[in-house]
Each structure stands twice: as C-alpha cells, then as structure tokens.
Design a protein around this nucleic acid. Structure first.
Length: 443
RNA sequence: GGUCCCUUCGUCCAGAGGCCUAGGACACCGGGUUCUCAGCCCGGUAACAGGGGUUCGAAUCCCCUAGGGACUGCCA
C-alpha cells in the first residue's frame, strides 16, 4: 500500500480564506487519518499577484488552525523545492520533453500542448464518482476550434494546469484533494498525465462553500479570512469543528467534537457532493460548546487578548479566582469576545463605569439608597440571606424584586446580563459591592 | 453557447431499495426554571425540486424537465 501524501497548494495572493481553510483541513484530516504526509506547496507562478507577505499570512492562518504540515517551503522535505517559482527548470524540462515527442509546439516563447482528438480523459473521483469526458469537449463551444493547453507562458512561468501535474507527480502525491471548482480542470490534467506517461493520483473534489445567498463565498458575505473569525472571537478548534461539518459528519449524532475524533473517523468516501452554506448560527453554537468546555487556564489565555484590547486592568487576574468566576458564568457567552466582555467586571471596575452612568430619577434613587443601605447592613453576607432580605424589602415597599436587582446588576457589572446578582455580591464581598454602589451614589 | 457537477426541513448533516407515517443538530416558535441573560428541561413548525420509468416495493436505480453552480484566461 502506497503511503498517503496529500498537499494543500494555495497561491499567495491573499490571506487564508475560509474556503481555503476548508480544503486544507480536509487534506490534513486525510493525512492524519491515514498516517500519511501533509505537504504545503506554494503556487506562486502568478508573479504579479504573489507576495511573500501573503505566503506568511497563509502559513500563520494554518498554524492558528493547528494544521501542521510535514513538508513545505519553511520546513523543507525530500521533494522540494516547495515553491513553484523555484521549480521552473523542472517545468521546462517536461515541457521540452513534450515538445520532442511532438505533443506540444512553440508559440513565441510559450509552449503549448496540442490536444488530440478522441482521447478519453475521464477519471474516477472519490467523492463525485466517475467523471466521463472526451478530449473533443475541450473545443470552444462556439467556434468549434480546439483550445490547446498552454504549458509554459510567454514569461517563462508554467500555467496552473501544467505545474500541478508536474508537481503532484514529482512530489508523489497520492490523493489530490481540492475544491470542486477544479473538477472541470481535471480532465485537462489527466490528458497531460497521459501524455507524460505518468500514473494518475486519486482525485477527491470537495463541495464548495457558499454564502447565505447560495453564491460562492466572497467578500460580500462578510468575513472571509480566518483572521476575521479569530478577531470575532471564534476559537481554532471551533472553526476546525465547524468546517469539518461542511460536507462531512462523523457517524452518530455528534456535532461538537475535537480534532482527535475527526482524525479517527474521517473518510474521504463519506464526503458529500452538495455545496454547503456557511451558517454563522451554527458556528456560534459550536464555539459556545468548545469555549465552555475549556479548562480555566486555556480559557484565560483565550480571553486575555480580548480583555487587553478592551483595556481591562488585569492585575487581579488569578486562576483560582477566575475559575470561580467562570463557574458562575455558566454557559453565558458564545464567542470568546462575548465572554471577555461579560467577565471584565470581575477584574476591573472601570469597564463598568464606562458602560453605566447610574442615571435614575431622584425618587428612585432615594428608594434604592434605602434598599442598599439595608443590604449592606446585613451581617450574614451570603446570597440566600441577601435574597431573603431583598424579597422581604421589596414586598413591604410594594416593588418588584427586579426593580432593585436590575439596578444592582448594572451598578456591579455594567451589563444587563450576568449570573445571579446576590451570588455575585457574595462572591465580590461586601467591601467591593459598597465601593461600586457608592460610585453610583446608590448608598 | 459548450463541457462537467449538484438538487432531503430556513441551514448543516443522517439516509447507500423495504428499518422512513424521512432521523439528529442549529435557527425559529411555544411552555417550564427565574432578579436579567445564557444554560438546562419539555413540546412544536418545517424537507425527499417536478414528471416519467424500473421494481412486489424508491428519498435511495434510470431517463427527461426545471433550478443552481463550476469551468470555458499565457489567474490559480
């Protein structure tokens, strides 16, 4: 059995977008599932648009997703170089071979493959099944002229269709796993494999990812780069989980899973053919699941950048303290960003004062002052005792419990969402609560 | 225009001829818990694109139609 070798081959003309991440992920899953190698190859033959910066961003994006590669431009490997711009002599060599065999011709500085008639250029696709095509269909549908395949462009660079064939063969790629948009390029590549006398790799095309409007995902649909998802507060494992669910699902009804499970159960033949729509509601749900399952330390390290960005003073940050805070938070917060915001008041009072001014009319203030004074007078500073007092007090003053609980929540957290307010008060301690209430002149 | 691909609830995924009066999840809508929100618990709405075959039997196989998509670049 031949060793599995798969590759992700982005062109460095932009950041790693979500569709690219999906393709990279499925390649990675297949490599890890089969114990094979995952190779990163940079397709930088478009000299005008490729940049070093983009190459780096793509790699960083993959690292963020924890998709590690075994061979690539940075780590090297036995099948290098891994940038197409560094492999020009190879492409030229095989183009000339085709020239000598009379299968290609020159047109100025370009080398062009002459497409023969009547050739079977169909192939088997692991996910799409058998794709039957005859070389005659490469003709222009309007003019009836055969459209030959450019191998080497006038600038000396290979075209995509030629470079992939040469590279995939030389790098001994066993499975070509890529987006469905390449399915119609494949017959041309099959033709080239045949002309060079090379064995075909296995092909597996992946369904496209669409936007809400069912159109190919693009900038119009909002976030496209994986960094945008990171900045919105989604975690790598969530994006991983979510993307894995687009076109595939593990057996059973599992929706939230970790990468080990995906690696163990992933099968190319179980990938479906239907293009899928990216649904942020589902991502939110998946993220929430992963986020709240995180151990404290990891949760803190996820939240930290968002707290910092918010300008929260982290001097009180301590694991044991935050562990209790998170415990009280329960399942609140879907994204890391949400959770950072929903917990900032545990660490720092200033975000609270930024969000809440304590504006109430005089009559209400007077009432609240009465209530809070009583509360702070309580000797038994526990949630049940505070709640009992609050219920009694509100009843005899003919107001609802929420009429005092909500202002108290705002004064302490600056949010309209929080854990139980008396629970919170007990946790913070009387001194801190007094300080916060005094700040708003509620006591 | 040509070639190729796709079509199960709003969305994602199950279903690989009888287990389907089509299942799960997200979202949505009710109800419960409640000081808020989230969570949790209970319940609900909602789909095999249409039409022909094949078969004792079809969401599953075949054909046609319709709709969508990709490719059709000396971009990848």
């Amino acid at each position: 059995m031949k060793k599995t070798r798969v590759r992700f081959a982005p062109s460095p003309t932009g950041a790693l977008h979500i569709g690219g991440a999906h393709t990279a992920l499925f390649n990675w899953l297949w490599a890890r599932h089969t114990g094979g190698s995952f190779i990163l190859r940079i397709e930088d033959t478009d000299r005008a648009r490729s940049t070093q910066e983009y190459e780096k961003t793509i790699m960083d994006g993959m690292k963020w997703m924890n998709l590690d590669w075994d061979e690539g431009p940075d780590v090297g490997g036995e099948y290098g170089p891994y940038r197409q711009a560094d492999r020009l002599d190879l492409y030229r060599k095989y183009a000339e071979e085709l020239l000598e065999k009379g299968k290609a011709y020159r047109d100025g500085d370009a080398i062009i493959f002459k497409v023969p008639l009547g050739e079977d250029i169909g192939f088997q696709d692991i996910v799409y099944g058998s794709i039957d095509v005859v070389s005659d269909s490469l003709k222009d549908g309007r003019t009836g002229e055969m459209k030959d395949i450019v191998l080497i462009k006038s600038d000396g660079m290979p075209t995509y269709n030629f470079a992939v064939v040469v590279d995939d063969h030389l790098m001994e790629i066993s499975h070509v796993i890529r987006g469905e948009d390449h399915i119609s390029n494949t017959p041309k590549q099959v033709l080239l494999y045949k002309a060079l006398g090379w064995e075909l790799p296995e092909f597996a095309h992946l369904p496209m990812i669409l936007g809400k409007d069912k159109k190919k995902l693009s900038k119009r649909h909002g976030a496209t780069s994986v960094y945008e998802y990171r900045d919105m507060g989604y975690m790598p494992n969530s994006v991983f989980n979510f993307l894995a669910l687009l076109g595939w699902a593990p057996a059973g009804d599992r929706e939230i899973f970790d990468r080990d499970l995906a690696v163990a159960e992933f099968e190319l033949k179980n990938v479906n053919r239907k293009p899928s729509v990216l649904d942020l509601d589902k991502l939110n749900f998946v993220n929430q699941g992963h986020l709240h399952a995180l151990p404290v330390e990891e949760k803190i390290s996820m939240l930290q950048p968002f707290w910092e960005e918010e300008g929260v003073d982290l001097s009180k940050l301590e694991i044991g303290y935050m562990e209790k805070a998170f415990e009280m938070m329960g399942g609140r917060g879907r994204t890391v960003k949400d959770l950072a915001e929903f917990t900032d008041y545990f660490l720092d009072f200033s975000p609270v004062t930024k969000r809440y001014k304590g504006d109430v009319d005089d009559d209400t203030r007077k009432k609240l002052q009465g209530f809070f004074s009583g509360l702070l007078g309580l000797e038994d500073w526990t949630a049940p005792s505070m709640e009992a007092f609050a219920r009694e007090w509100t009843e005899s003053n003919e107001v609802k419990l929420k009429d005092v609980a909500m202002p108290m929540r705002f004064a302490i957290t600056g949010h309209k969402v929080s854990p139980g307010i008396f629970e919170l008060a007990e946790f913070f301690g009387k001194d801190e609560i007094r300080k916060r209430l005094e700040h708003f002149n509620f006591v």
